[in-house]
């Protein structure tokens, strides 16, 4: 088995990291049929599974460069209906992290990634999510400065946007997790 070598296929790496075996998929298409986002994906979930099965490096790259993995919102409809109980949400999580690690993330999906990053950064410093800071940070990253500005006064007037963040007492510990996560892998 070449599962441990750097040259091994994405499918083998997936199996090693998550125990999900792409060979279990028999291409019935139930995941793609129920996926609410399949129309937004260039490769619906069943096609991703097929590409993994080919163990072709070209296909592996296509997956990591795809929008599919970022458009997936982990709604888990695929897993709940898969006759083979293949954990596709887990596959998508793995692919996203792999895609970032290899610097292959899809340019068209950069806003989705920016948002996730802004979200995590927000937690990093305060321990909790502060929505104004998150959105402001996201706007700076995405340069979508005017997006949703119409919502802000409405949200403020309804008390939905506290100006000051809540900061937890042990914020050092939480930011410590971020540091540890950089050199831990499981």
């Amino acid at each position: 088995m070449s599962a441990h070598s750097e040259n091994s296929s994405l499918s083998a790496k997936l199996h090693q990291a998550t125990e999900v075996k792409s060979a279990k998929c028999y291409q019935c298409g139930k995941c793609s049929a129920g996926c609410p986002l399949s129309t937004e994906m260039e490769y619906p979930p069943s096609v991703i599974m097929r590409m993994l099965q080919t163990e072709d490096l070209k296909n592996d790259r296509k997956i990591l460069k795809s929008q599919t993995i970022w458009v997936c919102v982990s709604c888990e409809m695929c897993l709940s209906r898969c006759p083979m109980e293949i954990d596709i949400p887990k596959v998508m999580d793995f692919m996203r992290q792999k895609s970032i690690a290899e610097g292959l993330s899809n340019p068209k999906s950069k806003n989705i990634i920016r948002f996730h990053k802004a979200f995590l950064d927000s937690i990093k410093y305060t321990g909790r999510l502060h929505e104004i800071s998150l959105v402001a940070d996201y706007k700076m990253r995405s340069m979508h400065l005017t997006q949703d500005v119409m919502m802000v006064p409405k949200m403020l007037s309804r008390g939905k946007l506290p100006i000051l963040p809540e900061i937890i007492k042990d914020k050092k510990k939480v930011s410590g997790f971020f540091k540890k996560s950089e050199h831990t892998n499981f």
Binding site: S74, Q97, K117, F119, L120, I123, R128, F177, F178, S181
Partner: peptide
């Protein structure tokens, strides 16, 4: 603290 929501399991398994 925050549970990490979608962002964490999308980007960082450890978190």
């Amino acid at each position: 603290n925050c549970c990490g929501a979608t962002a964490a399991h999308n980007l960082n398994k450890v978190l």
